[in-house]
Simulated assay, not measured.
Amino acid sequence: MRPRLTTLLCLVLCLSQRTGTQKETLSRPIIWARPSFMVPEGKQVAIWCQGTRAADEYQLHFEGSLSASQRPKPPGLGNKVKFLIPAMTSLTAGKYHCFYRSGELWSESSDLLNLVVTGMFDTPTLSVHPGPMVISGELVTFYCRLETGTSTFFLLKEGRSSHVQHRYGNAQAKFSMGPVTTAHRGTYRCFGSYNNHVWSFPSEPVELLITGEVESSAIIVFYPLFETDSWDPDLLTTETGFHKDLALWDHAAQNLLRISLAFLVLMALVCLLAEDRLRRKRTFQKKADRASRWECRRRWRNTTLRKDQET
């Protein structure tokens, strides 16, 4: 019985450990900055990190090193925390990511949040050619110029679908796009910079108007350096809910798996104990039967011996 029990327990424990290793992972947290990832020098900004309600602690890392840690308040009821930067400077601009802990288990890292400080250099000028009003299908070029000189320029389209394009240049950079469609319509600004996280004042806005019928469905492919959409909490309602539901489902599945494994172990032990008890009962019964037969034979022999002696 013992070798079989030991083998069963080892099998169950190995399965439990393997399954736990595969399933016990926490969903990736979401990180964003409010009011924006672009913060004027000296202004306040809040970095939000959102995990699950099971989170016990959150950690914020800046440029790969631990910057701050915080526990949700009240514990077990909130699924996000806020890390406040009272005054934005060039020293606080850079790459941020966050983690959260539930019990002894840490989550994966969030996506990178590129926090930018603005207002550090002179104001660039932005112009568009052939003009701010073009016909659908034409080619358009934006020119961003900074008289004091810089190394990198950034062009942003305002709105919920804004992305950042960047170009290199000493005093001027051009951003070509087209054939344009109504998707390119909107308000644009540009910035100058000497690195990816310290920018100039924004240029004056330039509004691009598209007239005429759409002649081509082709649009310029943006290669975003910073995807602001992923940091806007208003755009993350569905994604946040999905992560939250997925995390809750993971915890429920893990608990159900543990309960199932415990039930299987318990049932296996009950079966083995019942089998062992039945085997012991049968062995005892056989011994009792042998003892009874032996006693009968002994009495028969004694009776026979007495009769022989009397005769």
Rank of each mutant, 00 (worst) to 15 (best):
M1P: 05
R2H: 13
R4F: 02
R4S: 06
L9Q: 15
L9S: 08
L9Y: 12
C10N: 15
V12L: 15
L13R: 14
Q17I: 10
R18W: 13
T21M: 12
E24T: 10
L26Y: 00
S27T: 11
I30N: 06
W32A: 02
A33V: 03
S36Q: 12
F37A: 07
M38Y: 03
V39C: 13
P40C: 06
K43P: 12
Q44W: 04
W48M: 11
C49R: 09
Q50M: 12
T52F: 00
D56A: 02
E57K: 15
E57W: 14
E57G: 06
Y58S: 01
L60I: 02
L60W: 01
F62H: 01
F62Y: 01
S67R: 10
S69G: 01
P72K: 05
P74D: 07
P75Q: 11
V81A: 03
V81N: 03
L84F: 12
M88E: 01
T89R: 08
F99R: 00
Y100F: 08
Y100P: 00
R101H: 07
S107D: 00
D111K: 07
D111A: 03
V117N: 00
M120C: 08
T123Q: 15
T125N: 06
L126Y: 04
S127V: 09
S127Q: 07
V128C: 05
V128A: 05
P130H: 04
P130F: 09
G131M: 10
M133A: 05
S136E: 09
L139R: 14
Y143C: 07
L146D: 03
T150C: 02
F153G: 05
L155F: 01
K157M: 12
K157H: 05
E158F: 14
G159V: 04
R160W: 01
S162Y: 03
V164I: 12
R167W: 01
R167E: 10
G169E: 01
N170F: 07
A171S: 10
Q172I: 10
A173Q: 06
K174I: 09
V180W: 02
V180Y: 05
V180T: 06
T187W: 04
Y188N: 04
Y188A: 08
R189V: 11
R189Y: 09
G192T: 05
H197E: 11
P202L: 02
S203C: 01
I210L: 08
S216G: 10
I219A: 09
V221H: 04
P224G: 14
L225S: 08
E227Q: 10
W231S: 13
P233I: 11
D234N: 12
L235F: 06
L236I: 11
T238G: 02
E239Y: 07
T240D: 06
G241K: 14
W249Q: 11
D250L: 03
Q254E: 06
N255D: 15
L256K: 13
R258C: 01
I259L: 05
S260F: 08
A262E: 03
A262L: 11
L266C: 08
L266M: 05
V270L: 10
V270I: 06
V270Q: 05
L272T: 08
A274V: 02
D276T: 07
L278Q: 15
K281H: 08
K286R: 15
K286W: 08
A288C: 03
D289S: 05
R290V: 00
R297I: 12
R299A: 14
W300H: 11
N302D: 15
T304D: 10
R306E: 11
Q309L: 15
Q309E: 14
T311Q: 15
